[in-house]
Amino acid sequence: MLNLLNKLRKPEAYLKLERTHYGIKIFLPENVSENAVIRALMKIKADSYKLPENQGIAFDFAGRLCTRNLILHMLNSLIWEKGLKVIAWLSGNPDTIKLLNEAGLSTSEPALNLQEKSQESQIKHENEHEHETKKIKIPRIKIVYGSMRGGQKVETDGDVLLWGHLNPGAEIIAGGSIIVAGKLLGVVHAGGFAANRDDVFIWAGHFETPQVRIANKLCYVDPNSAAYWRKSVLITLEENTPVIRENKF
């Protein structure tokens, strides 16, 4: 009888958790129904994952094909409702990655947090040989397909290529360089975070933003006097001064 009841019971999903350098990674099981995954996620209590300020949660879909319904449930009933700080949405499934990118969600493995970076730097100083043998995964370039709308944000330690427009109210903060193939109307910060690099650039297909941030420099642009307004531009940092060049070739 008990066996029969067990057979009738809906299969349960179990979430696998892993401690990482940026916080917690939650693996969503691949071989159970979406409803079972949602039921398991709903069991997460609001105060379950109170992490330090510089840490967060990454959801890993692995090979699972994620649907809009699942993302919506996670956003509505878990993340917004319970206030979880999610810093990455990881997947090995190309369709899931495409869907997450279209939603403006970060699909890159989070880089080392600031505190750990400084520790790493110290280790390198003390024992360079040991550090060379240690592999650290830092994203090289993040490609975002489609325009980013107001309120959407991409943060990465590497470079960013936006294959679309960056609308007003949208933000890209990158440790490396930024290319906005369409209209640049929102906020970009190249060489940001702790990177504070001065060898980065911003390229925009159509420059129309009143403010640009590059390394530790903040530049304001006056639309009435800037000759490069609504033109294709390259912005670099030369001798610690931002230089904006219009594409005239």
């Binding site: 919506l72 279209e102 939603a103 709308r149 107001g150 959407q152 609308n167 007003p168 109210g169």
Partner: peptide
């Protein structure tokens, strides 16, 4: 008006992410 268009853009992004 620019504020209304900007807010509409934000809402469209959210609606798109909701499918």
């Amino acid at each position: 008006e620019i504020p209304a268009v900007r807010d509409a853009d934000r809402i469209i992004g959210m609606l798109e992410s909701m499918g």
